[in-house]
Structure formats: C-alpha cells, structure tokens
Design a protein around this nucleic acid. Structure first.
Lengths: 222, 222
DNA sequence: GTCAAATCGAACTGATTGGTTCGATTCTTT
DNA sequence: AAAGAATCGAACCAATCAGTTCGATTTGAC
C-alpha cells in the first residue's frame, strides 16, 4: 500500500542489481508515464508512447511493471504520496486559527491546482467507474486525509476554546471547499488552462477564512 | 449550440421521414449511449455495444451520428440541458433568503448527486484534457450557470438590504460548494456508491445556509 | 397492395494497441 | 579483460474497435 515510493535496492547473487529493481529507472519510467497519462488519459495513453517518453524500451517497461493498469496505479500512488507529504508539512502548529488556516489553505490550494495534480485528478475521476478501488484509495488518502488533518487541528482549537464547532470534520471539509471556490472546478473541466495566481489564491482563501470565522469563531464577549 | 434537444421532424418528398431524422429513434440511441458511456467511460465504450444497448443496427447508428465523438457531445449536451432546466425551475422567488437558499440548495444538490449526473461529470472531466471545448462548454452551461443564477438572486437580496455581500458571484459559488461539502467529492471518486439520502442533503444544506448567513446576513441591529 | 426508402444485420477493412519474443548491445562486477 | 545479466530495439501476435458495405427485411405513404 505505501511500499510504493521507497523500494529497497535489492541485489541478486554476486551483488548485482536484479532486473526491474533499479529505483532510478523506475522513477524514469514513472516520469514518462506521468507525461503521457496526464496528457492523454488512461485509455488513449499507449504503452509504446510511454516507453518512448521514458527513454526506455518496451521490454524493460514490462520488466518493471506487469501491465498498464499496475503502472498506472503505481503512478497515481506516487503522486498521491507526494501531495500527502506536502499537505502534512503545510499544517503548521500556529495557535492562532486565522493564521494557521490561512497558511494551510494557501499551501493546499496551490498544490491542488498545480498542472500535474489537476491532470492526475482528471484521470483518476475518469476511470473511477471502472476502477472504483483506485478512486476510493486516492480519495481516502488524498482529499479525505487532508480534511481529517484539519479536523484534528480544529478539535484542538475547540478544546482550547478558540473556536466553537459542533462537527469538526464537516467544518474542515467546508473550509477546504471554500478555499477552492471559483478556483478548482473550472480547472477540472479544463475551462481555465492555467493555475490561479498566488494573489487569486490568497484572496479566495482570505474570504474562506473570513467566512469560517464568522460562523465558528467565538465572540469576543458572550 | 442548443438546437440539440428539439430537432424538427423533417420530412422528404412524398412526406416521408428522412433518414436519421426520427426524433424517437434519436432519443433511443442517446439513451443507449448514456448507459454505455456512463458505465464504461468514453474510450472503453464501443460503438457496437452502444448499438446493441440502443436496439439499433450499427449502420443506423452512423446514420444518426457521424462518429463517436459527435454522438458523445450530443449526449452530454442533452444531459446538461436537462440539468439546466432542473436548476432554473428550482430557484423560486422566495424573498426570504434562508428559505430560498435552502430550497435551491437542496434541489441542486440532489440533481448533482444523482447517479447519471455523477457519471456524466466523471466522463466529461475524464476527457477534458483531450476535448477542452466540451469541458468548457459543459462547465459554463452547467455549474457556472447555476452560480450565476444564484448570484443574480443575491444581487437582488443585497439591493433589498437583506444581505450584505461584496462579491456576489464568489458568494454564490461558496454557497454551492458548501452545499456539497462531504457529499459530491466522494461520489466523483466513486468512494461512495449511492447518492446521499434526502436527510443528509438537508443537513449539509442547512449547515451551508447557516454558515452563509453568519457571514453575509445583515445583523438585526447595528 | 405496392413501391420506395429506412433499417437491419452481419461480414469486412484498416488501424491501433497491449503484450511478447529474441538476438544484439551495453553495463557492471570481478 | 571477460562473463553474465540488464537493457535495447524491432519485429511480431492476437484482439479490439471505429467506421463501411451491401443485400435482405421492414415500414409507411399512397
């Protein structure tokens, strides 16, 4: 499940690397696959194209990945993992909700609207009907995880009396959705071809925080 | 652009129907196409399967639609049109923002999370990279249109002094996103296989309205 | 009932693709 | 330098699929 990104460098007899176990080559293949999959989608991406894009022979491709679907899954997991790391380190432990939420919202919205991330989203959603497990896994370890992270932070703020929230998970999702209002959806549909500027993001996140505090902030006095 | 759903019944000499102009047959084909496209996605859907599902010969299929892509576009436009009609009639003219927003939110969330609508969303997003025009068109005449509708209503409420909003379009999108928090995204990724219950929808929409009013409602006094 | 046109259906074409094979080549270790 | 394994690359196979063709059959206006 998460033995994806860190493959130990296995060696065979006589201390020689085993076929399909070179992590650099693996990365190289995944990079090529990323290009092709994200620019054409799952079905229209041909294995030959991927091999070419990765500067690898088709034979080697199949030494590293047993078939197209496994390659795709491995790729998605790698990307998801990268997002996860980004998100986790973005949630700093600022004890001021406004500062913490602003910072986190900004970071995560920027990541989510990045070219590659949007493409990956599109592809996963596109195959979700035929590969429900992949869709669910991606969702649970991506968006849902981010929400849970924020929810935990909100829990703390509630016990510290800095926020008044009944359902912190719902509140977390609300916040994340607000941060993306007008930004992410048009990108998903490819109606806007470039990521939002940092200023746009800052503005929308600012409004999100304002709305969030209007609802869940504790009044200065009773 | 929107001559899609109402094709006049053209007739040829001797008052006979022209090939590929029977609206019933056209509907029949689109219905079959809907089944196949939504259950398999654009690429994996074969024209033969569609012909079978529609109870129509492949030859006839190609009489009515010049190729796979045109068929798909026609189908998406029909579905989008249906959604549009649903949304427009849902926005009643209640002068109480809480009631109006609750009603509208509920209706639109139910429509959006319906089985077919979600599938259509998935497919459009999935091909958005290769067919950007379709994606944009679908977005602008779907989600974006809904937002604009609400924005107009909000404008009115603002001039009537019932709400205090700076950017009504942003507020509209925020509201729609709030209404879907925790509901639509997992459905898109197929992490939740059934539409939310009416009670769930009511609850989330209720929270959305509460949050919206906390931010944009005018204080009773002061 | 007749006749023309629409539809059927079933075979066919040409192109693409996932996946395999295998001898030639390049690394890497000793 | 020599061997042994990974990699290359280019041909190859079987399957699938978009789109076409055409004679047989149905339909509907007269």
């Amino acid at each position: 499940m998460s033995e994806t990104s860190e493959i130990p460098v296995r060696t065979g007899p006589r201390n020689r690397r085993i076929a399909g176990a070179d992590p650099d080559k693996r990365r190289q293949i995944l990079d090529g696959a990323l290009q092709v999959f994200t620019s054409r989608g799952f079905d229209a991406a041909s294995m030959s194209d991927i091999a070419t894009a990765a500067n690898v022979s088709k034979g080697t491709l199949y030494v590293y990945f047993e078939d197209k679907e496994h390659l795709f899954v491995a790729l998605i997991q790698r990307e998801r993992e990268a997002q996860k790391r980004g998100a986790i380190e973005a949630l700093n432990e600022d004890s001021d909700p406004v500062r913490a939420l602003s910072k986190f919202g900004f970071c995560i919205v920027r990541v989510i609207n990045d070219e590659l991330a949007v493409s990956a989203h599109r592809v996963v959603i596109g195959v979700a009907e035929r590969m429900p497990d992949l869709g669910r896994e991606f969702y649970e370890n991506g968006p849902m995880l981010g929400s849970r992270l924020i929810a935990r932070y909100l829990d703390r703020m509630v016990t510290e009396g800095k926020l008044a929230i009944d359902d912190t998970y719902l509140a977390a999702v609300q916040f994340l959705d607000l941060c993306q209002s007008t930004l992410t959806r048009p990108r998903l549909f490819n109606a806007v071809r470039t990521p939002p500027s940092e200023n746009e993001i800052r503005h929308v996140v600012g409004e999100a925080v304002a709305m969030f505090m209007a609802r869940y902030g504790v009044k200065p006095e009773g």
